[in-house]
Amino acid sequence: MTNQNSYRLPFLVTSILLIICFLINISLGSVYIPLKSVLNTLTGGLATQDSWHYIVINYRLPKAITAVLVGSGLGISGLLMQTLFRNPLAGPFVLGISSGASLGVAIVILGSGLFGAVFSTFLISKWSIVIAASLGSFLVLIAVLLTSLKVRDTMAILIIGLMFASITASIVSVLSYFGSAEQLQQYIFWGFGSLGNLSWNELLILSIIYTVGLLVSIRSIKALNTLLLGENYAKSLGLNIKKSRLVIIISTSLLAGTITAFAGPIAFIGLAIPHLTRQIFNTSNHEILLPAVFLFGSIIMLICDSISQVPNSDLTLPINAITALVGAPVIIWLLVRKRKMIF
């Protein structure tokens, strides 16, 4: 809309910050690898030791890229949902995506007893969890969408999403009640979320769907800006509300759905990053907010992941615990300092 040039410097600074965080994230880990070797490996050279080369290429680099995709993807989905539902408490999972995914995974892990012991080892492989999560979130999302087609009010969709989340949560409770201790632990571990388990093949699939979702979200920038005036004004400006709403929801589903399928239900980031970005960039223009959310989402996720690794130790903390532990105080600090919420 206006004054795009005045954002050039903050964008430059944030981009540089992203690159620094990316490099720091790769250099930290349970094994000490000097930054020089990391840089050598990344630029196509060889590290001083073969094992270092292997760790960087097959473990740390995919993990860092996953962190960028997860942080930016969830941040952008959160931004889309907050604008669409004109609700600062909305996040990427208001449409039942994470509850659907957790239902799918719960059925596979906790319900595996029902399928018999022979299948259970086969069922609980990496891919079966990814497929179960995708199927679960897809089905719940479709259910929410079909119901929401019957209502005209966008707010009602929000409530319908919450209701479906409650239904799935209660089914998961029933399954947990009958599950064994071992199964429960496995399910809870999935719920912690994880960035480090992706192979290059899995990462490729994640990034393809992520890119499609991202492009769709960029395509809806104009609609999002129009929606800032409210739906009646947006309609009077020629916006096709139903179509734009569908496009925004599809974009969110693609981004948040695949991320949840591969990395588990990562909490907090989707809700917090848009607020953090609005506080720092002080704008509601999505042409600025969208790329800014991309940068901040990636940076925060990389930092959280670096912390969860507990540098120079074998300990890895659950990423879901770290995101809120790091993110929440930042948001509180920004709100207290500026004394008002920007929305």
Binding site: T2, K222, N225, L228, L229, G230, L237, G238, R278
Partner: peptide, 24 residues
Amino acid sequence: LISKNLSVFELVALGRQPYTNWIG
């Protein structure tokens, strides 16, 4: 208005939406 964080110029510029390109 949903978002009062728009500047007056931005608000008025939104009136140009029917004429602007895909990104506005």
